[in-house]
Amino acid sequence: MATTLSHLPKNRPDLRQHRTPGRKNPGKQAATLVALVAGALFAGLPVLWMLSSSFKTNGEMFANPPRLVTEGFNLGAYTEILTDPVKVRFFVNSYVIAFAVTGLTLLVGILAGFAFSRFDFPLKKTLNVVIVSVQAVPPITLLIPYFGLMVALKLYNTYPGLILTYMVFTIPYAIIMLTGYFNTLPRELDEAVKVDGAGPWTALWRILVPIAVPGLVSVGIYTFMIAWNEFLFALTLTRTEDMRTVPIGIQLLMGQHSYEWNQMMAMSILGCLPVLVLFLFFQRYFIGGMTAGAVKV
């Protein structure tokens, strides 16, 4: 097996490396830079405001005129969150759930995407329509029957309950993206294993999946974010404090009478850090990643 596969590329060549740098045109360069800075202000200022608010005291939050830079750099909100075992538990729960959802979604999505990409079978179109459109049922109407189902399956207030629930939402997305991704990979690749008499299973795991790593990363990051940020089902399907996730922790700070503004902001800054780290870590893959997947969907 190894010998027959050795001629295949281990890593996808990075097209960017083959590019020759364009001629530098100072006017154009400046225009691009200006446009990007404008975009960065649009995207970044609200986040900067959030960041600065997380260092304010609750009283300073609504100072008039609004202040971007805080007077006393106050870490109170962060220490209060990080020293509260209940709140730390929210983060742990979110991690466990988001990682499990991501791993399982990729696994199931790879299998299904492979089937849609490499086989023709009856009901293919119907299944496609179903997979796309079930996403459109307003979750709020599904809530009660779904909740009843989870209780009946004894999955209420458990990790697996939330994990399976999020998979229902992430798998259609993963299938759509991964089907397209596999579609762009040449069939000759799968044929190579035939020489050894191996079947599609081997072709999938030995050849397609290793090549598809970038696509998997991009789908994985998005899946992670869906699972990390979901609120409605996380709230309904959990009952005890030790099962709650970060978005619920944030909403718990929005009380009946008042908001803990600085803690809310600090918690969401802390909440976005793992996703940001993942994004930075996988950035190279991510940029190249969705390419093939999406192009042919």
Partner: peptide, 19 residues
């Protein structure tokens, strides 16, 4: 710029709303 421009994507809806 890539990192800054991707920022709005990283927050849960509740926070986007109150912000």
């Amino acid at each position: 710029f890539r990192v800054i421009l991707v920022l709005p994507w990283l927050f849960t809806v509740a926070i986007i709303a109150v912000l």
